[in-house]
Computed example of a mutant assay.
Amino acid sequence: MRIEIEENVRAFIRERPEKDRRVIGEHIERLSEHPNALGNIKRLKTRKPRWRMHISSKFTLFYYVDDNTVYIDHIMSQELAHKKYGKIWESPYDLPVPIKWEYHVRLQDHCGETPLFPLSIHLQKNVLSTVHLG
């Protein structure tokens, strides 16, 4: 497969020390073997197929595949990726913006008991996507 790297990714790589540039380059070369590339690669839960690759527990690379080309469009520190997107993108949209609230609510059952239940509410793109009780 061909590999296309966006300019913002190239700029990020150029700013790294030589050792990091070498390691990132080695990982990017593996993507030419997609979908059989080796490494910490995971398909993301997005509307359009996208993947992320962790690089040496330091960086996270995001990419998509179209025809016979791998397009690398984002790279950032692994710490920033987890802060920004969580461990895995859960949104059905290309750019993730899930919001999740968790509450504990008391519901009265038929015996008058009021046990405590966990309640999770997930919003994606301002639309209620999941409500989970218990």
Rank of each mutant, 00 (worst) to 15 (best):
M1S: 06
R2Q: 15
R2K: 15
I3V: 10
E7K: 15
N8S: 15
N8D: 13
N8W: 00
R10F: 09
R16Q: 08
R16N: 04
P17L: 01
E18G: 06
E18N: 02
K19L: 06
K19C: 02
K19V: 11
D20V: 15
R22V: 14
R22M: 12
I24E: 00
G25N: 14
H27G: 06
I28C: 04
I28S: 13
I28A: 03
E33I: 07
H34C: 08
H34L: 12
P35Q: 05
N36H: 13
N36G: 06
G39N: 02
I41T: 11
K42P: 02
R43P: 06
R47D: 14
R47M: 14
K48Q: 10
P49W: 12
R50N: 09
W51E: 14
W51C: 05
M53W: 08
H54E: 13
I55W: 03
I55C: 03
S57G: 11
F59H: 00
F59T: 14
L61Y: 06
F62E: 08
Y63Q: 10
Y63A: 00
D66H: 08
D67G: 05
T69P: 01
V70Y: 01
Y71I: 12
Y71P: 04
I72Q: 09
I75N: 02
M76I: 05
M76F: 00
Q78H: 12
Q78T: 11
L80N: 06
A81V: 03
A81F: 09
H82L: 05
K83L: 01
K83Y: 07
K84L: 02
K84M: 12
Y85S: 08
I88K: 02
Y93W: 13
D94M: 07
L95N: 03
P96T: 11
V97P: 00
I99G: 01
W101H: 12
W101E: 14
Y103L: 13
V105W: 08
R106K: 15
R106E: 04
R106D: 04
L107A: 05
L107E: 14
Q108Y: 03
D109N: 14
H110I: 09
C111R: 15
G112P: 10
G112Y: 04
T114W: 10
L116I: 11
P118F: 09
P118Y: 01
P118H: 04
L119W: 03
S120T: 13
H122P: 03
Q124R: 06
Q124E: 10
K125V: 07
K125N: 11
N126Y: 04
L128S: 00
L128H: 03
V131R: 02
L133Y: 04
G134Y: 03
G134A: 01
